[in-house]
Design a protein around this nucleic acid. Structure first.
Lengths: 220, 220
DNA sequence: CACCTATGTTACTAATTGGTAAGTTAGGAA
DNA sequence: TTCCTAACTTACCAATTAGTAACATAGGTG
């Protein structure tokens, strides 16, 4: 008989795996939902599959989350929460403007590459017309940290005369995101149409092109 | 009593609308399928909805196309065919390299904007892992015209010393496509997260940024 | 202990949906 | 005219799937 000690609290820890634990069940359902919705889209996702992935019965799922749409909403929100958490690990404060900008582009690309469910969820949500993201009230704050950092880099770059003035940080971020998003989001069609191997070396090359494009765009 | 004369052949033309016409039915089904799959994705698309949109009964649809997957394949293929047809109208031959590059970016953006079903189909296909696009054998030829034109512009630009050498046309096209694709594909989430009005003036501004970014990237 | 609620399951239903069998009709060919 | 085939429809089925009712039990509280 084996014990699996995952995410137990101080007092009740250790005996975890098969005990009743609402928190753990909720987390498992949310994680499973994020995976399933990201892999198959909103209409393609199966409630039974989510329950099975979570190791939980269907009525539990309906108990904690209301129905498929509410679960989808929670999963989309979770995607943003996890992305925000990842972005907090990026620190560009001490770096020279050009190096900081390079790191930002590289980080964004690696972020998208290592968390493909984020791009999937965004595509799914845009297919649905953005009806759900509009309901997530604090979604605007989510990338504010990134924009703040980007603004600081731009300002420092301008005062050091390595960047030209008049660049809007949001516009710039959208262009950076575009360059990082597209080759990952469209990896399969790019492979088929242009015979690109969209693998790590190829993406690294593309990243360097993106960095160069951004730096040239910012040069005075 | 009114006549609707659409797509009739020389001999049988004129009496079109309600006569039996396999060609017309096939076309109607294909158009309806492209719309439905683009709007709702593969799993979200409904065969009944496609039949109704086409003004045709379901068994007709199964008669001409085999099943849902084959119809989806035909719709994806049709998306590429229509995009290719649109691209043939672009002619950059006589223009100065920089003007030609500007026109190419503007055209690409307008192309994506005016045919949103193309972006939808690409996103849907990438969600499915590209399993279908791989089966469309001549998909590689589809954008070859564009790449050929781009190569010529680059060469002219290099020999006129307005572009630097060593730029790979496919890499460049992917970056142009990225800059044009992203704000349209992700319009709804951009509106929600960054409060961008992704409307015509905003897209025009973004297009100018993209043009400038590309031209600066190409400058010697 | 006895109780009670939160946690959990089995087994089901109603509706949707991809797909089809069987039949109907238009219109050209003989 | 009389066939005969391709074009087309109605009416259905089997499987899937979101959602639920009814039941079971762990484990803290009085």
């Amino acid at each position: 008989m084996r014990h699996r000690c995952l995410s137990g609290e101080a007092a009740t820890a250790g005996t975890a795996s098969k005990k009743r634990d609402a928190q753990r069940s909720k987390r498992a359902i949310l994680d499973a939902a994020l995976s399933e919705f990201a892999e198959r889209g909103h209409a393609g996702a199966r409630i039974d599959a989510i329950a099975e992935r979570a190791g939980v019965s269907k009525p539990m799922l309906y108990n904690y989350f209301g129905d498929k749409d509410e679960l989808y909403t929670a999963a989309l929100r979770e995607a943003y929460v996890q992305i925000r958490a990842g972005e907090r690990e990026l620190d560009l404060a001490g770096k020279a403007p050009e190096a900081a900008m390079r790191d930002l582009v590289a980080f964004t690309m690696e972020h998208f590459r290592s968390k493909p469910w984020f791009i999937s969820m965004l595509n799914t949500e845009n297919l649905l017309g953005g009806q759900t993201v509009r309901k997530i009230k604090d979604v605007g704050e989510i990338q504010s940290h990134l924009i703040t950092m980007l603004t600081r880099i731009l300002n420092r770059g301008v005062s050091q005369r390595v960047f030209r003035p008049g660049i809007d940080p949001v516009d710039l971020y959208i262009m950076i995101a575009a360059l990082c998003y597209f080759p990952i989001s469209n990896a399969h069609t790019l492979r088929a149409v242009f015979r690109c191997p969209v693998d790590e070396p190829w993406l690294n090359r593309h990243r360097e092109h993106a960095v160069e494009m951004v730096l040239r765009y910012l040069a005075p």
